[in-house]
Design a protein around this nucleic acid. Structure first.
Length: 484
RNA sequence: GCCCCGAUGGUGUAGUGGCCUAUCAUGCAGCCCUGUCGAGGCUGCGACCCGGGUUCAAAUCCCGGUCGGGGCGCCA
């Protein structure tokens, strides 16, 4: 039923960008979206448009060319009588996805035949071509069909991402990615955070815990940064107060799952005079803002994703701003929930994916898991003496944000007492003298502070219903893929 | 690193020892058509991952390799 709707209406239109204010360029007087939107008022005017040839329907002495640019689709009507013979023939025989420029007058399109009794669709407009040019010919066959209704495997799609991106729902997902970053920035700026950029090339002896990619930096050894953690803290210690960064992080882990990549974009914040509860608040307000803005402004993009999902027999995704505050399920309580749900776990164990499944039955949406054991958190996480778990172990002020079974965020209050910091380093087998670039930042008065890092692709998975982070990363880097 | 599964035209698939000079869809190429719009009609094109082995006979069974998928582990 839904599939029929998808097919009858043709490919999604909701992913087309609003180009109301776009200026003319060297290759066009109007975007296709402008012609479609202006409609009636442009009838009789000459326009030059350019786009991809989505379909070319030849009909002897006439020809229908469906052109698509990033802002819309429109039909160009070509008549042999109205233009140069050779040009007509070359356009009529051009291949799908070739880029073509068309000049002609806007006209009202003849209404399509509809089944008896069905209402006529609203009037549409077309361009009666008088001149044109093939800008670049597409080779055939396409390795990934742009409008074909056949499934394509993810690997083939990623090998041909440049074509995959032309597909409506894929294009929509990357526009949504841009919107998520935009609204996230917008919100943080409104709360006084400033954007920073930390170095991605770092010296040896980083945080430990994860494997780093080594590289040669002139004559010395260096590594690709696993996280902006230490640097965003230094920025806060230095007086920038509230900072955020959206940047790449690299981890040389040989994982191979739907949610891990070896290069990923992390959305990080750090704020002075804040504790874990404060930054959880920032996070839930930011996510709520993103979801609100998407549902206000960008449902056309979600529709494009859903039209595809429907054609694949999948449930549509919905965008409803989650209620605030998000549930807080302290680590100790989470352990109890897992035990009650029949999971094998004891205090001090990591909460693994299959444990998260049990918790997600009770808390299917966003939820925080604060107060992890200190022994499970990195050395820079703050703890308060006397805050102990059910078996007496020291608790930390570190937290995770999960959605269902998936971890979105890791964060916490940071240790600002330099002597505790140095002891923490020794406790995890690191040498404080390797971290003076970092610990020195705490020697001259350090504000208590807190922050978090959010996996952008994981958040996008939630928003778009993508089952794999690779769907929402342009050119993903995993264990076996470094190209394209 | 472990366990399981898979690889058939450009793409997605059917096929479980002979019925396969291999199914279907989509695509591509050509022809017909002066208003198509999921265009239509007709005619073509194009594939069993690689290397060994078993068998009278292998897309199909076995071994090795390569590539891919799923699950797990590892993972601020």
């Amino acid at each position: 039923m839904l599939t029929e709707t998808f097919q009858r209406d043709g490919p999604a239109r909701g992913f087309m960008r609003d180009s109301t204010n776009w200026e003319p360029t060297a290759y066009r007087t109007h975007t296709i979206g402008q012609v479609v939107a202006a409609g009636e008022s442009l009838v009789g005017s000459e326009v030059t448009i350019a786009g991809y040839a989505e379909t070319v329907r030849g009909r002897g002495a006439i020809c229908f060319l469906m052109l698509r640019d990033g802002t819309g689709r429109i039909q160009a009507f070509l008549k042999k009588d109205n233009m140069d013979d050779d040009l007509f023939d070359s356009i009529q025989s051009s291949t799908r996805e070739s880029t073509i420029q068309i000049t002609g007058k806007v006209a009202k399109k003849r209404p399509p035949k509809v089944p008896e009794g069905d209402p006529l669709p609203p009037p549409e407009f077309e361009v009666n071509a008088e001149d044109g040019m093939i800008l670049a010919v597409s080779e055939t066959p396409l390795p990934v069909g742009v409008t074909d209704e056949v499934n394509v495997g993810l690997d083939v799609r990623l090998d041909n991402r440049h074509l995959d991106l032309r597909r409506a729902h894929v294009n929509a997902m990357f526009q949504l990615r841009s919107k998520v970053l935009q609204y996230g920035r917008e919100h943080l700026i409104s709360e006084g955070f400033q954007e920073i950029n930390s170095p991605k090339i770092i010296a040896a002896a980083a945080e430990g815990g994860t494997n780093l990619f080594p590289m040669k930096y002139f004559e010395t050894d260096a590594y690709l940064s696993q996280s902006p953690q230490l640097y965003k803290q230094l920025a806060v210690l230095g007086g920038l107060e509230r900072v955020f960064e959206i940047g790449a992080a690299f981890r040389a882990e040989k994982h191979d799952t739907y949610r891990h990549l070896n290069e990923f974009v992390s959305f990080d914040i750090e704020g002075a005079w804040m504790d874990d509860e404060d930054v959880m608040g920032v996070q839930e307000r930011m996510i709520s803002h993103i979801w609100c803005k998407i549902s206000e402004n960008d449902m056309g993009l979600i529709d494009a994703v859903n039209e595809y999902r429907e054609s694949q027999g999948k449930d549509p995704v919905t965008v409803e701003a989650p209620a605030l505050p998000f549930p807080r399920i302290p680590y100790c309580e989470a352990i109890d929930i897992v035990k009650q749900g029949g999971g094998e776990i004891s205090w001090g164990d990591d909460i693994e994916s299959h444990h998260c499944d049990i918790i997600a039955e009770k808390y299917p949406g966003f939820h925080f898991i604060p107060r992890w054991p200190m022994s499970m958190k990195p050395f820079y996480i703050h703890h308060k003496e006397g805050e102990e778990g059910s078996t007496g172990g020291q608790l930390s002020r570190g937290f995770d944000l999960n959605y269902g079974r998936d971890e979105m965020t890791s964060g916490g209050a940071r240790e600002h007492r330099v002597e505790v910091l140095e002891q923490n380093l020794r406790d995890v087998g690191l040498d404080p003298s390797d971290f003076t670039f970092y610990t020195d930042g705490f020697r001259y008065g350090a504000p208590p502070h807190a922050g978090w890092g959010l996996g952008v692709a994981r958040l996008l998975m939630v928003l778009t219903g993508a089952g794999n982070v690779r769907e929402v990363v342009l050119f993903p880097r995993d264990r076996s893929r470094v190209t394209p």
